[in-house]
């Protein structure tokens, strides 16, 4: 049996025995797959069930979601590199507060505080204020130093979620310049980077490292453990 066949046997074997969604009725199985089609990331049956339940719940109202979207656009403004909408930041925040309920109170009360402040100062809900007005509200809470007030803690939490949501998205990852998560051959730090940092690979170390042109040659050693292939 060659490698490909043996892997196929294992995979089919494990699927055929129904281990992935064991205990689910066929109808339930179908629903689970439909609802989490987008998120296929190696969950156990219990985790799939949990995701499904969370994805089917709604926490924030349409108005709250709109406020989150507007606020997120102020925290990470749109550029050609990416936008809050492309990064699905509001959807991520809606999910995470159900996933980690400790976020719920601080965010909901903070959003209420923003609207109350906007109404009091400018006679409008936050989303209907001008950008200058909106920023004047954020500026009250965006530069916390040391112990935070409740409103400052709200802003810091929202900012954390917006930034993490943006940079962990497809557009955000490209924007950041993260280049990994794909098959490649690592052969050390690029020369220009080494040079810019005044670093080099020691001459007496060089011989220790993998010769990537021989990576597919079957490893063989002499009796002393010296690699001979």
């Amino acid at each position: 049996m060659n490698r490909r066949d043996s892997i196929k046997t294992i995979v089919i074997g494990s699927l055929a025995s129904g281990l992935v969604l064991e205990g689910c009725l066929p109808k339930e199985k179908e629903t689970i797959y439909k609802n989490v089609w987008k998120y296929k990331y190696g969950r156990t049956p219990e985790e799939l069930q949990r995701d499904l339940e969370l994805l089917n719940q709604v926490f924030f109202s349409k108005e709250e979601m709109n406020t989150i979207r507007v606020m997120a656009n102020l925290i990470v403004p749109p550029t050609a590199e990416g936008t809050i909408e492309q990064a699905e930041v509001p959807e991520f925040i809606e999910f995470i507060v159900k996933d980690a309920p400790s976020y719920q109170e601080v965010l909901r009360e903070g959003l209420q505080w923003m609207d109350a402040t906007a109404t009091e100062k400018f006679g409008n809900a936050f989303v209907n204020c001008s950008e200058t007005e909106q920023k004047s509200i954020l500026d009250q809470v965006a530069f916390a130093n040391g112990e935070k007030t409740k409103e400052e803690a709200f802003f810091a939490t929202m900012r954390n979620l917006v930034i993490t949501g943006y940079f962990s998205s497809e557009v955000g990852i490209n924007d950041l310049g993260y280049k990994g998560n794909q098959p490649n051959i690592w052969d050390g730090v690029p020369g220009d980077v080494l040079e810019a940092h005044g670093m080099s690979y020691d001459k007496d170390w060089e011989a220790k490292f993998i010769d990537q042109s021989k990576r597919n040659d079957l490893a063989e050693w002499d009796e002393e453990g010296n690699l001979i292939t």
Partner: peptide
Amino acid sequence: WPYESPRR
């Protein structure tokens, strides 16, 4: 990818 998880 991080975004293949709804909680990143």
